[in-house]
Design a binder for these strands. Structure first.
Lengths: 196, 196
DNA sequence: CCTACCGATCGGTAGG
DNA sequence: CCTACCGATCGGTAGG
């Protein structure tokens, strides 16, 4: 009898995905139960299946939603006229911003993608690999143009991506810094270092 | 009847912890079953309980073993006569090396500590917070001594730690780079940046 | 949207 | 170290 309370403009499926992302982040995909998700929505577990196909499907939608956003941004960056340093800065900025605006989804996508069913996992990894290849190409271009030092591109990409992926802003630095401060500080650090 | 095969010098408990770390890394703590762990050791699940108290205890031992190593290294760094830049480099180097030599344990400690039971979780977080505070103090000292730029220490620590924590060397770059190359590249990047 | 319920699997214990 | 087994919980289905 109880109906899912939808926030303004939120469809039922959106509400489910929002709550699922929060639950998966807090408990991990494997330890999060469908019953608990249903409870957070004010309904019984079996009723959820009128809206979703399976628990795994929710994880899949979260991961690929996030991946799509990153991929689309990368496409914008690649066709822009900016130089390698500016492109790299854009990517860092986007990661920090995305993490702060869509924390639950991004976190789940970063930490729980390994629980995707085989087929989805392969596709997810392929997208991720392409993303990293695009970044490596940007760094290589920067090295060629004498903009960057003669670094090892694949390791630099690993360092940059893990730095921005691993950020755990959560509540911690919520009111300590603005998002813009965080973005620019990360860009400065990862491009120019901290040594005077 | 089957006995656990112990590798040279490895006690049974050590073997259990090694296999548990690998299993927890691959499947996640929640999704890893005691039965599967037992199977990897060639025994039945109930027999495991002659050697362990609970599944949670294994996670606890893995996480605190790793935390102890980092904390002990930090203590060495803090009493050393090196300057802030050298101390920071030492910390980065230790993280990279530790990750490459104890991949499964470090990975589990980084990704699964949230599944620790309440009491252990609080202690783990306290140790982690102290570790970060020590690093912040090192950076502050570097800023005071005009060695570092006027960065935001807490964000810089976050960037450095997430960069080194998030590294996924695994098989990927196994034969592509030596550990030393990886260490020095990360130090160079996180201290001096990539811009020429 | 609900109640009722299924088979599978879980961590762990009893007892030898 | 084993077999036998427990209660709890899981994702999901049937039927209305």
């Amino acid at each position: 009898m109880a109906k899912i309370k939808t926030e303004t403009n939120g469809s039922i499926k959106d509400m489910i995905l929002i709550n699922a992302a929060e639950l998966f982040r807090k408990k991990g995909f494997a330890a999060a139960s469908v019953r608990e998700l249903a409870e957070s929505l004010g309904i019984e577990a079996p009723s959820l299946y009128n809206h979703i196909g399976s628990k795994a499907e929710l994880l899949q939608e979260i991961c690929f939603d996030v991946a799509k956003d990153y991929t689309m941004h990368m496409d914008d960056v690649l066709v822009s006229k900016k130089n390698a340093a500016q492109k790299t800065a854009d990517i860092i900025r986007f990661h920090v911003r995305k993490l702060s605006t869509d924390f639950d989804k991004v976190f789940v996508s970063e930490h729980e993608w390994k629980r995707l069913p085989q087929k989805n996992l392969e596709e997810f990894l392929a997208q991720r690999k392409l993303y990293e290849k695009n970044m490596i190409d940007i760094l290589k271009d920067g090295i060629e143009k004498k903009l960057f030092k003669n670094i090892l591109p694949s390791i630099a990409v690993l360092a940059i991506l893990s730095a921005v992926r691993g950020l755990e802003l959560r509540q911690r630095h919520k009111n300590e810094f603005t998002i813009e401060e965080l973005e620019e500080t990360m860009i400065e650090h990862l491009l120019h270092g901290i040594i005077k």
